[in-house]
């Protein structure tokens, strides 16, 4: 009877354990194996050693380009998104009437933003005679070929992500509410200015939340697929050909499963290294009120 008791917990975990093996560990190992093969769905996979990797780094400028574009996209989206989220959360945290209404309004893009419909509409908004250009002409400017220029096309897909700052904002807002009011009052009594309070009290106290949002948004941005696929098709001239899109095209259009697996592993390693670097440096700037480390 005691023994059954002891393993009862594992019984509840059985479905999850099966899933972990079949849907996570097996494909994880399998993709590493595939990345060392020339598998293309037609022939049996042949082991080719590091051939895929050397080819990617020495003979495939398209891949290198996609990595730089992915980093550019991440840098263009994550910091502005978090700054925006923090700034709006800071304002919303003052006791204002109707705060729930604003909170809901700002959260809507995060709920809808992932939907294909929004990507389709985005493409339309920034098209040659779309709404954005109509507004520009209204103010006397000349219309911009948003999607025909590499840099502006990158801006268009970046703005779509920044627009969805609501989820990070809601998490910030919850963290801001945890800060004891006495701290602010004490600082005010000492004559501290508002911005001093913000940078010396608010920001240090919510660094764990900033850290969490930063890691999560970074991991997501590095894997962005929908926007370049649906809005820019990776163009113009590969300017928005993010790595996820390149992997998709190689794997599911040209069926280069081995080669695409090698690409996924490089992207995975980049994501992992960046995440680990953040965790490593976090003890320098993330402040945990219980004194412990993450």
């Amino acid at each position: 009877m005691k023994k059954i008791q002891k393993y009862q917990g594992l019984l509840y975990l059985t479905p999850w354990l099966i899933g972990l093996l079949v849907f996570t560990i097996y494909p994880f190992v399998s993709s590493l194996y595939l990345s060392f093969t020339d598998y293309n769905l037609l022939n049996r996979p042949h082991f080719v050693g590091f051939a895929n990797y050397t080819k990617l780094f020495t003979q495939d400028p398209e891949f290198m380009n996609s990595l730089w574009k992915t980093l550019e996209y991440t840098l263009l989206t994550v910091p502005p998104q978090l700054l925006f989220a923090l700034f709006i959360a800071f304002i919303l945290n003052f006791k204002l009437k109707g705060i729930n209404l604003y909170r809901t309004a700002y959260y809507i893009p995060s709920i809808l933003g992932g939907n294909v419909a929004i990507a389709v509409l985005w493409r339309f908004l920034f098209s040659g005679d779309g709404l954005i250009n109509q507004i520009i002409t209204l103010f006397g400017g000349s219309p911009i070929g948003w999607l025909s220029n590499g840099f502006t096309a990158m801006i268009v897909i970046s703005v779509l992500r920044i627009w969805q700052f609501g989820s990070a904002m809601v998490i910030f807002l919850a963290a801001l509410k945890e800060i004891p009011v006495e701290l602010y009052e004490a600082a005010q009594v000492d004559g501290a200015k508002k911005w001093t309070i913000f940078f010396k009290i608010t920001v240090p106290l919510i660094t764990p939340t900033i850290f969490f949002n930063l890691v999560m948004q970074m991991v997501n941005a590095l894997q962005e697929f929908n926007a370049p696929y649906l809005i820019t098709a990776g163009g113009p001239a590969k300017a928005t050909n993010l790595t996820s899109l390149l992997i998709y095209n190689n794997a599911f259009k040209f069926f280069r499963m081995g080669y695409a697996s090698a690409m996924s592993w490089i992207l995975f390693l980049i994501i992992m290294v960046l995440t680990i670097m953040m965790f490593r440096t976090s003890n320098k700037w993330v402040y945990y009120s219980d004194g412990g480390n993450a």
């Binding site: 849907f23 996570t24 494909p27 399998s30 993709s31 590095l222 499963m257 695409a260």
Partner: peptide
């Protein structure tokens, strides 16, 4: 697994 990017398991799952 919370931090495991989906991109790395996608191809083997398709083959599976």
């Amino acid at each position: 697994t919370l931090f495991l990017p989906a991109v790395v398991t996608r191809i083997p799952l398709y083959l599976f």
